[in-house]
Design a protein around this nucleic acid. Structure first.
Length: 400
RNA sequence: GGUGGGAUACUCAAGUGGUCAACGAGGGCAGACUGUAAAUCUGCUGGCUUUCGCCUUCGGAGGUUCGAAUCCUCCUCCCACCA
């Protein structure tokens, strides 16, 4: 039992520090029914969860299966600082109301994966506010600047002559202090969080908490481009709240190479099953597109159910295999006659008439499936299907 | 506090009085080819009721000039070295 649980927890992880401790906690759960605390922090600035987040969430859910109580931290205080991700933008301080709103939205989405009965949702301002200026200074005495600069991200920026704000040094300290206050047994996060996660161990030691948290790191899920991490700001994400059709299509658009990565980190198939599939593709027995469809269907079904996933697949085939027009496209009504470029902007297919003109010249615009080249074209009364590129459609009714 | 360097479009990065809506690279979008994959090749990549035209953009505010991203003044921010 313990071994199976450990195997399941280890699956897909990038690195585990103090694995023995995790094994011990699991053993105690199975033998004595003892629970333990697994901490994970989330930023309240982006309430739209995407698949990158679910890699962590699924791991948390696994812990819940085996006696873990999840400490789900909304970093409302730390959000004011902003995690030093290399972006130089100063974060706006979020007001209480927005944070609460975002937190609520988090919960709606998070509990699609986590078990609410085994989850504590906590705001870190609750204990950090109490720390006060003197407490904060106390905290800063525990870590040296040289130690801070060991952090990969800081080191790179420092060497590149990029600015680092003092407040950014405080971020890891506060995240570590969360672990002190909550007496966490395990903290999980992405590999990019390594420094912060280890800080939790160091501070627990410094404060004499009596235990040091084990640290479990998950790989960072690449976004649709396959290069950069999945993030909302880069626009390369698949949101958990997205429409089934969109979700399915987005998975289909990833590269074959990336598909295996997604399998490893997102699929609930066993590693053996995945390996068999991979071999099949490699030997030419299985078409890679088929393997991708399986994945797309599994992911879509997780958030929308089997029915919706099936419908999404059918829709995908309809549109792409048969080159048909999607069954459900946005409709607009405009007064005519109207200049084609303007119409495209009005139908939200193009951001500007200048861009529309360029696309017309590039041959990317179709009206009723016919490619057009006349950028001065005016649409008279009637109904048209407008298309830009391969995936943007709109139905337009031109009235008098 | 002192000295020097820097701030250019999504990012990096050229440009040091007119030929600059601004080289180049990356990214992005589109076309061809495909499996709406990847790779490759090609085009585009500030806006405008319409484009051999007009308007806005080179950290901010003024100024010099027929004309400024480029010169001058002040301001803001960043970096390095010295204290």
């Amino acid at each position: 039992m313990v071994k199976e649980a450990v195997d399941e927890i280890v699956r897909g992880t990038a690195e585990i520090i103090d694995k023995e401790k995790i094994e011990k906690l699991l053993k105690e759960y199975f033998e004595e029914g003892k629970h333990y605390y697994v901490k994970a922090g989330f930023d309240p600035t982006a309430p739209d969860l995407h698949l990158g987040h679910t890699v962590l969430l699924q791991k948390l859910a696994t812990f819940q299966k085996y006696g873990g109580i999840v400490q789900f931290i909304i970093g409302d205080f730390t959000a004011m600082i902003g995690d030093p991700t290399g972006k130089s933008e100063t974060r706006k301080k979020l007001d209480r109301e927005t944070v609460l709103k975002n937190a609520k939205s988090y919960q709606e989405q998070v509990f699609k994966i986590l078990d609410p009965d085994k989850t504590q949702v906590l705001f870190n301002s609750q204990w950090i506010d109490k720390l006060g200026a003197s407490g904060l200074v106390e905290l800063t005495t525990l870590v040296s600047v040289a130690r801070m600069l060991e952090r990969d991200d800081f080191e790179k920026r420092y060497k590149a002559g990029k600015p680092i704000a003092i407040s950014e040094f405080i971020y890891p300290l506060l995240q570590g202090y969360d672990s002190v206050y909550l007496k966490s047994d395990i903290e999980i996060g992405g590999t990019d969080q390594k420094f912060n996660l280890l800080m939790g161990r160091q501070l627990q030691r410094s404060f004499g908490v009596g235990k040091e948290q084990a640290v479990l790191m998950m790989p960072i899920l690449e976004g649709l481009d396959g290069v950069q991490k999945m993030s909302k700001s880069l626009g390369n994400y698949i949101g958990v709240d997205e429409e089934p059709n969109t979700m399915f299509a987005k998975v289909m658009s990833i590269s074959d190479e990336l598909m295996w990565r997604y399998y490893e980190l997102l699929s609930s198939k066993s590693l053996e099953e995945i390996e068999i599939l991979k071999e099949g593709v490699k030997e030419g027995k299985v078409h890679p597109k088929y393997a991708k469809e399986l994945l797309a269907a599994e992911i879509t079904a997780r958030f929308h159910g089997d029915e919706a996933a099936k419908a999404a697949k059918e829709e995908f085939d309809r549109v792409h295999k048969q080159n048909d027009i999607p069954s459900d496209i946005a409709e607009y009504e405009l007064k005519g006659p109207i200049w084609i470029a303007k119409a495209l902007v009005e139908c939200a297919l193009e951001p500007s008439t200048s861009q529309a003109r360029r696309d017309i010249q590039a041959g990317a615009v179709r009206v009723d499936k016919e490619k057009i080249s006349d950028k001065d074209l005016h649409l008279k009364e009637g109904e048209y299907i407008l298309q830009v590129g391969k995936r943007k459609f709109a139905k337009l009714k031109v009235t008098k």
